[in-house]
Write a protein that binds this DNA or RNA. Structure first.
Lengths: 319, 319
DNA sequence: TTAGCGCATGAAAACCTTTACAGATCATGG
DNA sequence: CCATGATCTGTAAAGGTTTTCATGCGCTAA
């Protein structure tokens, strides 16, 4: 059926040990033998059985990636980055989508744990204690979340918010609404904290409550935002901002004439709508790549904080 | 380190064989023994090493999923469906994104082949011969592509196109542009064929050439569409349609007042823009699920063709 | 010439699980 | 009390790879 190392060994007239050496430790085998083995292996289409290899080396060559919702375009971008980088490093990627169900996450990770060398976790809502337990069981790198002692990749939220607020201030906005995301989300807490810090003394902040981090969340809160008499609104993320835009358009509210809208994430979609969404771009593919690097280099203490970038588009204008 | 079957066996005072039987073949072991083993296994946190199991059973409990571009929101939806269904069946999912590079696909699949029980292939562009070879090496189910002899999940393109054209005809459109996707894509050929069939005698079809199946493709062809003096345009997919909408908006062309726009796929995004996009909805998560079912042989059919549904939204109106 | 060394290779053990087969235990009927 | 059969459990092999250790060989230096 499948071609095994023995088939190659027999065809090359050497032992299995020599085959494995020729392929994964080439310098220890005589060049003539090595070349012959390699050639025969290639012609037979031999690839080592990774399960068997993993059994003895303890390393699987796989890694796991957990995301809360592929429906949010933020995450496919991360997946792309992880995927690409992992393949460069000759690793395969297990993907799990938890469908925004934090309860299921830990279980999923534990099931994957045996089959992977490490796990990348996009888990804004999982309890911190749970996360810490997990990190003790299997190498973990957190994506867009920070917990002391656990390696992580995040972005400079504070700087991003500063860019956003400066932009609005420059346009003359003095009273700005913030539509928050899920209260339990780390990213939400972080964004809110950053925003409060940078808003202090510069703009008056109106918090309009928490919504689901989705398009519908933005739609549902849009009318409340309008009632607040603000000249600009910052949304938890782009999806929520798009929900706002949608409802504003439906009500005939002009953006940015009547109100400016600012998002967070810079999902591809944001450049496609009209008016295009001004937003704080977070590195996504880059974050995925950085996460893989952290995981595979096993620098367990390390942490990376990537730069953010305000993307000024059509949805913001003078107050 | 990790807890193995021997640890459980020792703790329970039985042999490894009894442990494995107690857990995966419970009826053949005496109830009292079975319960004790199960209890101890649970308390030790024992999970069988899937690699080792796979080595002997020949089944891995994993499956592979290949998509051309996660950046196209069509595919994350499929991934979600696959993922959810696979987990229900206690299988894990390897994901590979080929970044629209058909050349890389076959290699990726072959590398994965040893680690999976089967592969789901979203591969609109791979050469048919290559695909057939692959299907001979590892169980394959094709998603949104059909090749004789290979199990596949597709949708009723013809019926979808019929719904779309009937809708336009009812609105009084008689001259309709079609923006085609990549010439090498199966879906493109299929859509074009269906469209020609249903358009015959009902509307005059203007084909405006092939574009990349992305937002930019739509943007780049929008002006050419306008020059054709049509009252409606059908795009290869939603992303292209959104590109059209974007460019139309920038040029001050009113949709649907000046021209109606119709997409294909129904990606989540299409309902979020303004005007919302009228489009032919293809089952995505459902297709993923059906694919998994086919692969795991929970279903004995070789092929499934899922229904499509025209979603009438704001981008189409009277001619 | 031979001891000694380095190098290339092979044999065998190990990784963890499942399963075919054999052995052990026990109850039952004769 | 023994033979028989049923039920339960243990032994050992198998699966494909990597790695440790040992072997054999040719060569150099004494």
């Amino acid at each position: 059926m499948a071609v095994t190392i023995k088939d190659v060994a027999r065809a090359a007239g050497v032992s299995a040990a020599t085959v494995t050496r020729a392929l994964s430790n080439p310098e220890v085998v005589r060049p003539s033998t090595r070349d012959r083995v390699k050639e025969i292996a290639a012609s037979l289409g031999y690839h080592p059985n990774r399960a068997a290899r993993g059994l003895i080396t303890g390393r699987t060559g796989n890694l796991g990636l957990l995301v809360p919702d592929l429906g949010n375009p933020f995450f496919p971008s991360i997946v792309k980055g992880v995927q690409a980088r992992a393949h460069e490093a000759d690793h395969a990627v297990f993907l799990a989508d938890t469908d925004e169900d934090p309860a299921a996450e830990a279980g999923l990770v534990r099931k994957l744990a045996k089959q992977v060398d490490g796990v990348l976790l996009c888990s804004p809502r999982m309890a911190e204690a749970e996360l810490r337990d997990l990190a003790a069981e299997v190498p973990v790198v957190l994506l867009y979340r920070r917990i002391p002692g656990v390696p992580s990749v995040t972005a400079e939220f504070l700087d991003g918010m500063r860019q956003a607020v400066s932009h609005l201030v420059a346009l003359g906005h003095r009273r700005v609404a913030y539509v928050a995301g899920p209260r339990s989300s780390w990213a939400n807490r972080e964004r809110l904290r950053s925003l409060r810090t940078v808003a202090k003394g510069k703009v008056q902040l109106v918090e309009t409550g928490n919504v689901a981090p989705q398009f519908e969340g933005g739609v549902s809160v849009a009318d409340r935002v309008l009632a607040e008499q603000v000249t600009a609104v910052i949304a938890y993320n782009d999806l929520v901002a798009l929900g706002l835009l949608h409802r504003f358009a439906a009500r005939g509210v002009d953006v940015p004439g009547d109100i400016s809208v600012l998002g967070f994430d810079d999902i591809p979609l944001s450049a496609m709508v009209h008016p295009a969404l001004t937003t704080v771009a977070l590195p996504k593919e880059l974050a995925g790549q950085a996460g893989v690097d952290l995981l595979l280099r096993r620098q367990h203490k390390e942490r990376r904080e990537l730069p953010t970038q305000l993307m000024v588009r059509g949805s913001t204008g003078p107050a």
